[in-house]
Structures are given as C-alpha cells and as structure tokens.
C-alpha cells in the first residue's frame, strides 16, 4: 500500500476539478429572486401589522364609546357601572391578537 506521503504527492499532482456549470450566474439570479421575495414578505408583514394596529385601535375606540353609552344608560337606570366587563373583554381580544402576532413572528424566524 502506498504510504501517506505518496498519496499527498498523487493528490497534489493531480488536477481534480469538475465542471462548475454556470453556478455564479444561477446563484446570483436566485439571490435576486430571494431578495425580491423577502421584500414582498416584508411589505405584507408591514401591512399585517398596520392592519392589526388599526383593528385594535378601532376596537378600543368602539369599546370605550359603547361602554360610555351603556354606562350612562345603566347608571341612569340602576346606578350600576358596566364598563369593566367590556374593557376586560377588549383586553382579552387584544392579548389574543398579540399572541397571534408573536406566533407568526416565531414561525417566520424558525423557517
């Protein structure tokens, strides 16, 4: 069996190269496509975040308006205040929205 040094010489004298094809161009094209897709995804994510923000804002505004109306009506009728259950339900929904957003972020990070 040839010894280690002899193998070193054999490998160093041999020209072990293979056809690379058009790797450089293909890689650059795929990177360009990847960047385009990433930008599109970033845009969709931004739209999604704005959407969630607007929904939350509208929901809070709606809750406050409705709660005020109900509170006024109820306090006129019986003197009790119904604003707290409404605010609590709004908070639960907001927490759920935040949770969904966090789940989507963690999913995107993993991939």
């Amino acid at each position: 069996m040839k010894d280690s040094d002899e193998f070193k010489t054999i490998f160093q004298n041999a020209d072990i190269n293979y056809e690379t094809g058009d790797i450089e161009q293909i890689v650059l094209n795929r990177i360009a496509a990847h960047r385009k897709q990433t930008k599109r995804l970033q845009f969709y994510r931004l739209i999604g975040k704005i959407g969630i923000g607007v929904t939350v804002f509208l929901f809070i505004a709606y809750t406050i308006v409705v709660a005020n109306l109900q509170s006024n009506t109820a306090s006129i009728k019986s003197g009790s205040n119904n604003i707290y259950p409404l605010i609590a339900s709004a908070m639960v929904l907001i927490t759920m929205a935040v949770q969904l957003e966090l789940m989507s972020i963690s999913k995107n990070t993993k991939s």
């Binding site: 072990i16 293979y18 056809e19 690379t20 790797i23 450089e24 650059l28 990177i31």
Partner: peptide
C-alpha cells in the same frame, strides 16, 4: 451589494464542487 457575492462564488466554486462530488 449582491454583486460582491459573485467574487466569493467565483473564488470557492471549485472547492465547493470538489467537496460535493
């Protein structure tokens, strides 16, 4: 600068192909 990546691809494509082969 994506074009700068072509330098790295050119430089190491032979090594990468040899290893993969």
């Amino acid at each position: 600068d994506v074009e700068a990546y072509s330098y790295l691809v050119k430089q190491y494509q032979s090594l990468a192909i040899r290893t993969a082969m």
